[in-house]
Computed example of a mutant assay.
Amino acid sequence: MMTEDRYAVVRNDEEQYSIWPDGRETPAGWHREGTTGTRDECLDHIERVWTDLRPLSVR
């Protein structure tokens, strides 16, 4: 049985979201948002919370 990779939802200072492999150091300029799960779970979460895709500096 194959296990699915785990990811963390990350967000930058412009409030843009992405996913990053859980367990790896978060890249500079990004912060863990608190959600972890499978790729699909994380992407579903981002779709629910990231409703305004414009960077914070443009809003």
Rank of each mutant, 00 (worst) to 15 (best):
P21Q: 13
Y7C: 02
I19N: 10
I19W: 03
E47M: 05
R24E: 15
G37C: 09
G37Y: 04
L43W: 13
E41Y: 06
V10M: 07
R39A: 12
G37N: 06
E14M: 12
E14C: 08
E47T: 12
R6P: 00
R24Q: 13
W30I: 10
W20N: 15
N12F: 01
H45E: 10
R24F: 13
V9M: 02
W20P: 01
E15K: 11
A8V: 14
W20K: 04
S18L: 13
A8M: 10
W30Y: 14
H31K: 05
P21H: 14
E14T: 09
G29K: 08
E41N: 07
E14K: 01
D22Q: 14
D44L: 10
V10T: 07
E25M: 09
E41L: 05
S18K: 02
W20R: 12
E25C: 07
P21L: 14
D40I: 01
R32I: 06
S18N: 15
Y17C: 04
R6T: 09
E47N: 10
T35S: 00
A28G: 04
N12I: 11
G37M: 06
T36Y: 03
I46W: 03
D44F: 02
D22E: 15
H31Y: 15
R32D: 09
E14F: 00
D44S: 08
P27G: 13
T35Y: 11
R11T: 11
G23L: 06
R6H: 03
H45F: 15
W20S: 15
A28T: 08
V10K: 00
E41I: 05
Y17K: 04
T38P: 02
L43K: 08
G34E: 08
R32V: 10
G29C: 04
R6S: 04
E41M: 07
T36A: 06
R11F: 08
R24K: 14
T26F: 05
E33Y: 15
A8F: 03
H31S: 11
W20V: 13
G29R: 07
